[in-house]
Design a protein around this nucleic acid. Structure first.
Lengths: 141, 141
DNA sequence: TAAATAAAAGATTTTTTTGTCTTTTATTAT
DNA sequence: ATAATAAAAGACAAAAAAATCTTTTATTTA
């Protein structure tokens, strides 16, 4: 479903939502260590998210990554599409160029019902709210 | 979700279910042309399915691939797991080593419902029955 | 039995994804 | 101002996935 890069992106964003803030920025090194993820690869991913204003950063001493109030209002759908492209939730599960409710592939109904559910959740839940649940239920990231 | 190879596999199997039979075998070349899929790559995939008794084949003139009665009773779950491995429907969507209902990752609930639905369909619908629906509704493969 | 055919198997290449390292630029604290 | 720090950017390497080509083996029909 998601590329490796995208999985790292989601986890990093959620990690920042829970553990960082404008007053407590976190460096790549720390995030990579906490998530057990390749450092340099993660750096690239964070840069891409930063360029697209999904996460915030400052250089220099006491610099690092964090989520602004605005960032916390974004959704994981935006994060996913930033890394894996805009078609993740629309592309035909069998790779057919045309596949829709009018012109469905043999798996369209099955795939659509359930993928649309995930899509809906990622689209309507703010990252900040997700983070609150993670803290409340003490979920691992 | 599925690898390219797996998408080709599903489509090829459904194609065979609809267009081939023990008395009317179809060669790789024809399948590849009909599905617009790389010929040699598809050949490899069909070999793997054949080795695992999910499709049938005979060599030589008037040889080719087809689905036996037994093959038609199998499911796409078996096809998918044959190509993409046994963990496709169980692996954590974020790639976490441990992720279950007891110890859920932040997306477990959302992802589980989505994937389990698809899993259920692919597991309980015989390929032969799927083929009937494809013919009835004239779906593209 | 021989020629033709088509899958099986093996080897190789190309492309994409993932991962690493180095240099540059911006920021901050001294 | 200067040194230290950390992200940004660029170049590169390794691994995996996708795709191609060649040789071998089995089967059938003439």
């Amino acid at each position: 479903m998601f590329s490796q890069a995208c999985k790292y992106a989601i986890r990093a964003v959620l990690y920042l939502a829970v553990h960082a803030s404008a007053g407590k920025k976190v460096g790549v090194k720390d995030i990579a260590a906490a998530l057990d993820v390749p450092k340099y690869f993660l750096a690239k991913i964070l840069q891409q998210l930063s360029r697209n204003n999904l996460i915030s950063s400052t250089k220099g001493p006491s610099g690092g990554f964090y989520l602004s109030e605005k960032n916390l209002e974004a959704t994981l759908k935006e994060v996913v599409e930033c890394i894996d492209g805009p078609d993740v939730f629309n592309a035909c599960i069998l790779g057919l160029p045309v596949c829709s409710s009018e012109n469905p592939c043999p798996l369209h109904i099955q795939a659509f019902a359930y993928r649309e559910g995930l899509h809906y959740q990622l689209k309507h839940q703010a990252i900040g709210d997700l983070a609150k649940r993670i803290e409340r239920e003490e979920q691992k990231i």
